[in-house]
Protein backbone atom coordinates (compact mmCIF):
# COMPACT_ATOMS: atom_id res chain seq x y z
CA UNK A 1 0.00 0.00 0.00
CA UNK A 2 1.42 3.31 -1.02
CA UNK A 3 1.08 5.87 1.65
CA UNK A 4 2.01 9.41 1.09
CA UNK A 5 4.36 9.87 3.97
CA UNK A 6 4.16 13.60 3.79
CA UNK A 7 0.47 13.59 4.55
CA UNK A 8 0.83 11.49 7.70
CA UNK A 9 0.25 13.49 10.83
CA UNK A 10 3.25 12.54 12.90
CA UNK A 11 2.08 14.79 15.67
CA UNK A 12 -1.11 12.80 16.20
CA UNK A 13 0.76 9.52 16.28
CA UNK A 14 3.28 10.84 18.74
CA UNK A 15 0.54 12.25 20.96
CA UNK A 16 -1.28 8.96 20.82
CA UNK A 17 1.87 7.09 21.74
CA UNK A 18 2.56 9.45 24.62
CA UNK A 19 -0.99 9.07 25.89
CA UNK A 20 -0.66 5.32 25.86
CA UNK A 21 2.66 5.46 27.69
CA UNK A 22 1.20 7.79 30.26
CA UNK A 23 -1.73 5.49 30.71
CA UNK A 24 0.52 2.50 31.08
CA UNK A 25 2.59 4.27 33.67
CA UNK A 26 -0.57 5.25 35.52
CA UNK A 27 -1.79 1.68 35.45
CA UNK A 28 1.60 0.51 36.68
CA UNK A 29 1.59 2.86 39.66
CA UNK A 30 -2.00 2.02 40.52
CA UNK A 31 -1.32 -1.72 40.38
CA UNK A 32 1.80 -1.28 42.49
CA UNK A 33 -0.19 0.50 45.18
CA UNK A 34 -2.94 -2.11 45.05
CA UNK A 35 -0.39 -4.93 45.25
CA UNK A 36 1.17 -3.38 48.32
CA UNK A 37 -2.23 -3.07 49.97
CA UNK A 38 -2.92 -6.69 49.06
CA UNK A 39 0.38 -7.89 50.50
CA UNK A 40 0.26 -5.80 53.67
CA UNK A 41 -1.64 -8.42 55.72
CA UNK A 42 0.98 -11.00 54.75
CA UNK A 43 3.69 -8.65 55.91
CA UNK A 44 1.88 -8.30 59.23
CA UNK A 45 1.49 -12.07 59.51
CA UNK A 46 5.16 -12.68 58.85
CA UNK A 47 6.59 -10.02 61.17
CA UNK A 48 4.23 -11.21 63.91
CA UNK A 49 5.35 -14.82 63.88
CA UNK A 50 8.95 -13.62 63.99
CA UNK A 51 8.45 -11.79 67.27
CA UNK A 52 8.47 -13.13 70.78
CA UNK A 53 5.29 -12.44 72.77
CA UNK A 54 7.08 -9.77 74.80
CA UNK A 55 8.49 -8.15 71.70
CA UNK A 56 5.07 -8.15 70.06
CA UNK A 57 3.48 -6.31 72.95
CA UNK A 58 6.32 -3.82 73.19
CA UNK A 59 6.73 -2.91 69.52
CA UNK A 60 4.51 -1.39 66.87
CA UNK A 61 2.56 -4.22 65.21
CA UNK A 62 4.19 -3.43 61.87
CA UNK A 63 7.71 -2.90 63.17
CA UNK A 64 10.38 -5.23 61.87
CA UNK A 65 11.34 -8.05 64.22
CA UNK A 66 14.75 -8.05 65.84
CA UNK A 67 15.56 -11.58 64.74
CA UNK A 68 14.02 -14.76 63.51
CA UNK A 69 14.64 -16.99 66.50
CA UNK A 70 11.21 -16.44 68.16
CA UNK A 71 9.66 -18.12 65.13
CA UNK A 72 10.74 -21.52 66.41
CA UNK A 73 9.38 -20.93 69.88
CA UNK A 74 6.09 -19.71 68.42
CA UNK A 75 5.76 -22.66 66.11
CA UNK A 76 6.66 -25.11 68.87
CA UNK A 77 4.12 -23.51 71.17
CA UNK A 78 1.49 -23.69 68.47
CA UNK A 79 2.32 -27.31 67.72
CA UNK A 80 2.35 -28.43 71.36
CA UNK A 81 0.27 -25.98 73.40
CA UNK A 82 -2.40 -25.41 70.79
CA UNK A 83 -2.15 -29.06 69.85
CA UNK A 84 -1.93 -28.03 66.23
CA UNK A 85 0.15 -31.16 65.75
CA UNK A 86 -2.94 -33.35 66.02
CA UNK A 87 -4.87 -31.09 63.70
CA UNK A 88 -2.19 -31.01 61.03
CA UNK A 89 -1.73 -34.78 61.02
CA UNK A 90 -5.46 -35.45 61.09
CA UNK A 91 -6.16 -33.07 58.23
CA UNK A 92 -3.33 -34.58 56.26
CA UNK A 93 -4.96 -37.98 56.74
CA UNK A 94 -8.45 -36.71 55.90
CA UNK A 95 -7.21 -34.76 52.91
CA UNK A 96 -5.03 -37.46 51.37
CA UNK A 97 -7.40 -40.35 51.92
CA UNK A 98 -10.64 -38.41 51.45
CA UNK A 99 -9.61 -36.63 48.27
CA UNK A 100 -7.71 -39.61 46.86
CA UNK A 101 -10.52 -42.10 47.35
CA UNK A 102 -13.16 -39.59 46.28
CA UNK A 103 -11.48 -38.77 42.99
CA UNK A 104 -10.86 -42.45 42.31
CA UNK A 105 -14.50 -43.31 42.97
CA UNK A 106 -15.56 -40.33 40.88
CA UNK A 107 -13.49 -41.52 37.93
CA UNK A 108 -15.10 -44.94 38.23
CA UNK A 109 -18.55 -43.39 38.27
CA UNK A 110 -17.71 -41.08 35.38
CA UNK A 111 -16.45 -44.06 33.44
CA UNK A 112 -19.78 -45.76 33.98
CA UNK A 113 -21.67 -42.64 32.99
CA UNK A 114 -19.63 -41.66 29.96
CA UNK A 115 -18.64 -44.89 28.31
CA UNK A 116 -21.69 -47.14 28.50
CA UNK A 117 -24.96 -46.59 26.72
CA UNK A 118 -28.02 -47.38 28.76
CA UNK A 119 -31.27 -45.72 29.67
CA UNK A 120 -31.45 -43.72 32.90
CA UNK A 121 -27.98 -42.27 32.57
CA UNK A 122 -29.23 -38.73 33.16
CA UNK A 123 -31.05 -39.87 36.26
CA UNK A 124 -27.97 -41.41 37.83
CA UNK A 125 -25.87 -38.42 36.89
CA UNK A 126 -28.38 -36.00 38.41
CA UNK A 127 -28.54 -38.16 41.53
CA UNK A 128 -24.81 -37.89 42.10
CA UNK A 129 -24.64 -34.29 41.05
CA UNK A 130 -27.47 -33.36 43.44
CA UNK A 131 -24.84 -33.80 46.15
CA UNK A 132 -23.32 -30.43 45.29
CA UNK A 133 -26.35 -28.18 45.05
CA UNK A 134 -27.51 -27.99 48.66
CA UNK A 135 -25.96 -25.60 51.17
CA UNK A 136 -23.85 -27.36 53.80
CA UNK A 137 -26.20 -26.21 56.52
CA UNK A 138 -28.74 -28.77 55.35
CA UNK A 139 -26.35 -31.63 56.14
CA UNK A 140 -25.24 -30.61 59.60
CA UNK A 141 -28.03 -31.60 61.96
CA UNK A 142 -28.95 -34.95 60.32
CA UNK A 143 -25.30 -35.92 60.02
CA UNK A 144 -24.70 -35.06 63.63
CA UNK A 145 -27.53 -37.29 64.82
CA UNK A 146 -26.94 -40.10 62.36
CA UNK A 147 -23.26 -40.17 63.26
CA UNK A 148 -24.14 -40.22 66.91
CA UNK A 149 -26.43 -43.20 66.49
CA UNK A 150 -23.93 -45.09 64.36
CA UNK A 151 -21.03 -44.31 66.66
CA UNK A 152 -19.27 -42.43 63.88
CA UNK A 153 -19.33 -39.11 65.69
CA UNK A 154 -15.90 -38.01 66.78
CA UNK A 155 -14.06 -40.76 64.90
CA UNK A 156 -11.46 -40.52 62.15
CA UNK A 157 -13.23 -43.06 60.00
CA UNK A 158 -16.42 -40.99 60.21
CA UNK A 159 -14.57 -37.91 59.05
CA UNK A 160 -12.92 -39.78 56.18
CA UNK A 161 -16.23 -41.25 55.02
CA UNK A 162 -17.96 -37.91 54.97
CA UNK A 163 -15.12 -36.04 53.30
CA UNK A 164 -14.92 -38.78 50.68
CA UNK A 165 -18.64 -38.53 49.98
CA UNK A 166 -18.75 -34.77 49.68
CA UNK A 167 -15.73 -34.72 47.38
CA UNK A 168 -17.29 -37.10 44.85
CA UNK A 169 -19.94 -35.16 42.87
CA UNK A 170 -17.81 -32.38 41.44
CA UNK A 171 -15.06 -34.63 40.04
CA UNK A 172 -17.80 -36.80 38.52
CA UNK A 173 -19.01 -33.79 36.56
CA UNK A 174 -15.52 -32.95 35.35
CA UNK A 175 -14.49 -36.51 34.57
CA UNK A 176 -17.69 -37.29 32.75
CA UNK A 177 -16.95 -34.48 30.30
CA UNK A 178 -13.35 -35.60 30.04
CA UNK A 179 -14.17 -39.25 29.41
CA UNK A 180 -16.94 -38.47 26.95
CA UNK A 181 -14.42 -36.62 24.83
CA UNK A 182 -11.84 -39.40 25.02
CA UNK A 183 -11.90 -41.65 21.97
CA UNK A 184 -13.37 -45.08 22.52
CA UNK A 185 -11.31 -46.88 19.88
CA UNK A 186 -8.96 -48.31 22.42
CA UNK A 187 -11.66 -49.88 24.56
CA UNK A 188 -13.38 -51.34 21.51
CA UNK A 189 -10.10 -52.95 20.52
CA UNK A 190 -9.51 -54.21 24.03
CA UNK A 191 -13.00 -55.68 24.22
CA UNK A 192 -12.42 -57.46 20.95
CA UNK A 193 -9.37 -59.02 22.54
CA UNK A 194 -11.54 -60.30 25.33
CA UNK A 195 -10.41 -57.81 27.95
CA UNK A 196 -12.78 -57.70 30.94
CA UNK A 197 -14.60 -54.48 31.75
CA UNK A 198 -12.74 -54.33 35.03
CA UNK A 199 -9.32 -54.66 33.46
CA UNK A 200 -10.30 -52.25 30.74
CA UNK A 201 -10.97 -49.60 33.35
CA UNK A 202 -7.80 -50.18 35.33
CA UNK A 203 -5.32 -50.60 32.50
CA UNK A 204 -6.72 -48.27 29.84
CA UNK A 205 -9.03 -45.63 31.31
CA UNK A 206 -7.38 -44.93 34.64
CA UNK A 207 -3.82 -44.36 33.34
CA UNK A 208 -5.26 -41.86 30.88
CA UNK A 209 -6.79 -39.81 33.66
CA UNK A 210 -3.57 -38.93 35.46
CA UNK A 211 -3.59 -35.22 34.60
CA UNK A 212 -7.14 -34.47 35.72
CA UNK A 213 -6.70 -36.85 38.65
CA UNK A 214 -3.89 -34.75 40.07
CA UNK A 215 -5.71 -31.47 39.44
CA UNK A 216 -8.92 -32.73 41.03
CA UNK A 217 -7.07 -34.33 43.91
CA UNK A 218 -5.35 -31.05 44.75
CA UNK A 219 -8.60 -29.15 44.52
CA UNK A 220 -10.44 -31.56 46.82
CA UNK A 221 -7.51 -31.91 49.19
CA UNK A 222 -7.48 -28.15 49.61
CA UNK A 223 -11.20 -28.14 50.24
CA UNK A 224 -10.93 -30.78 52.95
CA UNK A 225 -7.92 -29.11 54.49
CA UNK A 226 -9.73 -25.76 54.68
CA UNK A 227 -13.02 -27.12 55.96
CA UNK A 228 -14.07 -25.72 59.31
CA UNK A 229 -17.77 -26.35 59.71
CA UNK A 230 -17.97 -30.13 59.27
CA UNK A 231 -15.03 -30.77 61.51
CA UNK A 232 -16.52 -28.47 64.13
CA UNK A 233 -19.80 -30.35 64.07
CA UNK A 234 -18.61 -33.93 63.62
CA UNK A 235 -15.57 -34.00 65.89
CA UNK A 236 -15.10 -33.08 69.50
CA UNK A 237 -11.88 -34.51 70.82
CA UNK A 238 -8.70 -32.71 69.95
CA UNK A 239 -7.23 -36.04 68.83
CA UNK A 240 -9.72 -36.21 65.98
CA UNK A 241 -10.29 -32.55 65.15
CA UNK A 242 -9.12 -31.18 61.84
CA UNK A 243 -6.55 -28.45 61.64
CA UNK A 244 -9.03 -25.60 61.07
CA UNK A 245 -11.24 -26.64 63.91
CA UNK A 246 -8.21 -26.90 66.18
CA UNK A 247 -7.12 -23.43 65.14
CA UNK A 248 -10.54 -21.94 65.77
CA UNK A 249 -10.92 -23.61 69.15
CA UNK A 250 -7.42 -22.51 70.07
CA UNK A 251 -8.14 -18.92 69.19
CA UNK A 252 -11.37 -18.98 71.16
CA UNK A 253 -10.87 -21.06 74.26
CA UNK A 254 -7.24 -20.47 75.03
CA UNK A 255 -7.08 -16.75 74.49
CA UNK A 256 -4.49 -16.44 77.24
CA UNK A 257 -1.84 -17.46 74.72
CA UNK A 258 0.06 -14.73 72.92
CA UNK A 259 -1.13 -13.48 69.56
CA UNK A 260 2.22 -14.43 68.09
CA UNK A 261 1.47 -18.08 68.82
CA UNK A 262 -2.01 -17.83 67.35
CA UNK A 263 -0.53 -16.24 64.24
CA UNK A 264 2.06 -19.02 64.05
CA UNK A 265 -0.77 -21.52 64.29
CA UNK A 266 -2.64 -19.81 61.43
CA UNK A 267 0.47 -19.85 59.33
CA UNK A 268 1.00 -23.50 60.15
CA UNK A 269 -2.58 -24.21 59.14
CA UNK A 270 -2.05 -22.54 55.78
CA UNK A 271 1.37 -23.96 55.07
CA UNK A 272 0.30 -26.91 52.89
CA UNK A 273 -1.91 -24.78 50.67
CA UNK A 274 0.78 -22.13 50.36
CA UNK A 275 3.36 -24.79 49.47
CA UNK A 276 1.03 -26.42 47.00
CA UNK A 277 0.43 -23.07 45.40
CA UNK A 278 4.09 -22.33 44.86
CA UNK A 279 5.24 -25.80 43.94
CA UNK A 280 2.32 -26.72 41.76
CA UNK A 281 1.14 -23.38 40.46
CA UNK A 282 0.60 -24.78 37.01
CA UNK A 283 -1.58 -27.61 38.28
CA UNK A 284 -3.42 -25.22 40.53
CA UNK A 285 -4.35 -22.92 37.69
CA UNK A 286 -5.35 -25.97 35.69
CA UNK A 287 -7.55 -27.01 38.58
CA UNK A 288 -9.04 -23.56 38.52
CA UNK A 289 -9.85 -23.81 34.87
CA UNK A 290 -11.46 -27.12 35.54
CA UNK A 291 -13.55 -25.70 38.36
CA UNK A 292 -14.74 -22.74 36.34
CA UNK A 293 -15.73 -24.80 33.35
Amino acid sequence: MAVDLTTLDYGVIARDEARRNRENRGVFVLMMVLSIVWLAPFYYLIVSVLKSPAEYVASHPLALPSGIMPLFANVTDAWVEARMGFGVLNSLLYGVVGAGVAVFIAIMAAHGLARYRFSGRTFWFMLIFAGTIFPFQMYLIPLFFTYLELGLLDTRIGMILFYTAICIPFPVLVMRNYLTQMSSEMDEAARMDGCSEFRLFFSIILPNCKGPFIALFLLQFTWIWNDLIFSTVLTQRVEVRSVMSTLQVFQGAYADVSQTVVMAASLLASLPTILLFFVLRRHFMQGLQVSSG
Binding site: P41, N226, L228, M244, L247, V262, S266, A269, T273
Partner: peptide, 8 residues
Protein backbone atom coordinates in the same frame (compact mmCIF):
# COMPACT_ATOMS: atom_id res chain seq x y z
CA UNK B 1 -7.43 -21.00 54.69
CA UNK B 2 -10.52 -18.85 55.38
CA UNK B 3 -10.18 -19.73 59.05
CA UNK B 4 -6.53 -18.71 59.16
CA UNK B 5 -7.24 -15.50 57.30
CA UNK B 6 -10.10 -14.77 59.69
CA UNK B 7 -7.82 -15.26 62.68
CA UNK B 8 -5.28 -12.89 61.20
Amino acid sequence: APTAAGVM
